[in-house]
Design a protein around this nucleic acid. Structure first.
Lengths: 235, 235
DNA sequence: CACGCAAGGTATGCATGCAAAAATGCCAGA
DNA sequence: TCTGGCATTTTTGCATGCATACCTTGCGTG
């Protein structure tokens, strides 16, 4: 997702197809929070920025609209999709449903390579927490969870998860980071790794879901709406 | 993805938009199986069929590609996305993960209107089984499950579910319908309705997931690959 | 002074044109 | 007959142009 440094206008040469480059580039702009929530996106501005004509740019916007990152209003242009708390709560719920599956599947299917990658990312996460770098922590955290989704061995889930995760990352950029939450998050990650190491599938599933719910609570609280984030809790 | 703030007479999802009409039209062609798995889709043919130029048609194809219904090969055009068993197994797994959530959430949230709609669809399903109309049974079955997803009250999940369901419906058109499977499916549906009526959330969740797994098994078996379809089973 | 309305400017939606890449057919040589 | 290379044809990718819908702004009226 974040592999192409498309910040420069005409670094067009070696990238994939123009369409892929535009989608990735605009997605990056939105996920990083460079264009705030609700901003209008005039086609001309992005055309100039990426040095392309309107046709491929419009195609990219359509794709991003189906990802939910932009909203297309007929005859009225595109805006960065609003991040209102009810929708965000639904995103966390959906992500929680997938996390439960990811936990069960990853516990069964993670191979040696997966384990090494996750251990490495977990170490990075501890380091980020130690130096209290909230932005770094967020980035490593997202990478960890996407790597866990990889380990689940289901590309459909992987793609859906990435789409939902993009919304969450976007929301993270819009709120302040609470140091206490980082500490709690790290503790949850320790438990997650412990469950993964011994392949405790139900435990891993539950801990991932709870971690997601806790993150949802922390972020939604800053949006003024504290919701559970896991409406399908174990009960 | 997210609805327009106003749910008035005209919404972004209406057929008044050419883009929406094209996406829905082409999706219908593919889901109904009119264009078999792997068929090349020359732009010109669809342009003539829908009487539009290539620009909006290409935009529609990009959207469908992000839904996974078509595959875009750079400089080589679009094909109806191949339905190979491993991918289909992943689709069923992902759908199973969502069904678990849908069961938990629908048991909690289904209101009177939801219940009436589901009872009505369930009656239709029984009728379709009684007259042994396999195609009708498939259609009503899909409508029932999408209505159940509605009752879960999460539009993110609802949309992801619809996308996955489209792939399943496509696969259904590619295999023969086994009367024995219809009978078994109906029995599972009876149990699903029983659990829903008494709001047995865990029971409903489990039954939906098992129903999905059984459907997966039935369909994948005809593709020559019998897989579980619920790799994240309860254990 | 507030409100309604109309005209101009701006941005979007779609069609068309052109260049490049791939697919196809053809022919020559082995 | 088979194979390899080349030219033609087809199709895709992108740019541009035109019509239309929307937003803004200035003016007139109550």
């Amino acid at each position: 997702m974040t592999d192409a440094p498309v910040t420069g206008p005409r670094t067009a040469d070696r990238a994939d197809s123009l369409h892929a480059r535009l989608v990735a580039g605009i997605r990056d702009i939105i996920v990083r929070g460079e264009l705030p929530d609700g901003t209008r996106i005039p086609e001309a501005a992005l055309c100039q920025r990426f040095a392309v004509s309107r046709t491929p740019l419009r195609e990219a916007l359509k794709s991003l609209a189906s990802e939910g990152l932009v909203t297309l209003r007929p005859n009225r242009g595109a805006v960065v999709a609003p991040l209102d708390p009810p929708v965000l709560a639904e995103v966390f719920e959906a992500k929680g449903a997938l996390e439960r599956f990811i936990g069960l599947a990853a516990a069964d299917r993670a191979d040696r390579t997966d384990m090494q990658a996750l251990e490495s990312l977990h170490a990075d996460l501890c380091a980020a927490a130690a130096i209290r770098d909230a932005d770094l922590y967020s980035d490593v955290n997202a990478a960890f969870h996407e790597r866990m989704a990889d380990a689940a061995g289901n590309r459909q889930v992987r793609q859906i998860y990435a789409t939902l995760q993009a919304q969450v990352r976007r929301a993270r950029h819009a709120v302040n980071h609470d140091p206490a939450r980082i500490a709690a998050s790290l503790a949850e990650h320790e438990a997650i790794m412990a469950a993964l190491r011994v392949r405790a599938r139900l435990d891993l599933s539950e801990r991932l879901a709870q971690h997601n719910a806790a993150t949802a609570h922390a972020i939604l609280a800053q949006f003024g709406t504290a919701q559970d984030g896991d409406g399908a809790r174990k009960g």
